[in-house]
């Protein structure tokens, strides 16, 4: 990871909904080409934080820059410089493989020759050229997932946000997907990823864990395990999220 170039900087970033503080003054930086794991319990504020960083939600206070643009005033510029893939694949089941790629390319602003060349490159790289006229609904899950990842990258974004990209996927496909992530990071794309699979947290360069709207810990997986004297990231996560309060529940 390049120490010099920061592609995400958040400084006391906060979001309140009425009296409820969903994201409570979080501060962190992500470097270019880094694989950054963004973990937390359900309801800890991950989605809200991600929506602010992707320019979809205006923060209440604090500051944040994404790909060199300000989340308060330049959200449209941010959207052009990032890719996004959600847990429910955002591709259209009733369009063909080719139509899906063309649609996303066009949405991300690619035109004529550039668009044609990009579509060709994506299909070739995924070895899907022969299946270009296949309806997405007929593709195996693993292929859909790889296609969704490639379409999120079709406009060469600086950062790609992956929101639980591997939920429910079989263990081999899940690992193949992580190899794609590694390859993309090696090319310099920053990866910002959420997951409920704690073994995947180990694959990240650094991991932050949100608890009740705050970043409760942020370090390399190795560093976190040392700090919390835990064997696995699962133990780190449970210790942080469960905290001292719920020893009653833990007793079961």
């Amino acid at each position: 990871m390049a120490e010099n170039a920061k592609v995400i900087t958040a400084d006391k970033l906060t979001k309140r909904f009425g009296a409820f503080t969903a994201v409570d003054a979080i501060s962190f930086e992500v470097g270019a080409g880094e694989i950054f794991g963004f973990l937390g319990a359900n309801g800890a504020g991950k989605t809200t934080a991600m929506r602010m960083l992707t320019g979809l939600l205006k923060p209440t206070s604090g500051r944040a820059g994404v790909a060199g643009y300000d989340v308060f005033t330049q959200s449209e510029n941010i959207k052009r410089r990032i890719g996004y893939m959600s847990q429910r694949f955002s591709l259209y089941e009733d369009l063909t493989v080719y139509e899906n790629v063309r649609f996303y390319g066009a949405v991300y602003g690619l035109r004529s020759e550039t668009l044609r060349a990009k579509i060709k490159a994506v299909l070739e790289e995924l070895d899907l050229t022969h299946a270009r006229n296949t309806l997405l609904a007929e593709l195996p899950l693993g292929w859909k997932q790889r296609l969704a990842f490639s379409t999120a990258l079709i406009h060469d974004p600086a950062i790609v946000f992956l929101d639980e990209p591997t939920g429910g996927v079989d263990p081999i496909t899940r690992r193949q997907f992580w190899e794609m992530i590694y390859e993309q990071a090696e090319r310099g794309t920053t990866i910002f990823v959420t997951t409920h699979y704690m073994d995947e947290a180990e694959y990240c360069d650094r991991v932050s864990i949100m608890v009740d709207g705050r970043i409760a810990a942020l370090d390399t997986p190795r560093g976190l395990k040392q700090t919390f004297q835990a064997e696995t990231m699962d133990d780190v996560f449970v210790r942080l999220v469960r905290g001292p309060k719920s020893s009653v529940e833990a007793g079961g």
Binding site: G40, N42, Q87, H196, M198, V238, V241, E249, G252
Partner: peptide, 21 residues
């Protein structure tokens, strides 16, 4: 049917404790 899909690691553990009971 997939009671723990999309559920965080802590809630998953608690859910399985509950099934044991």
């Amino acid at each position: 049917d997939e009671p723990t899909t999309g559920v965080d690691a802590v809630s998953r553990r608690e859910f399985w404790d509950m099934l044991g009971r």
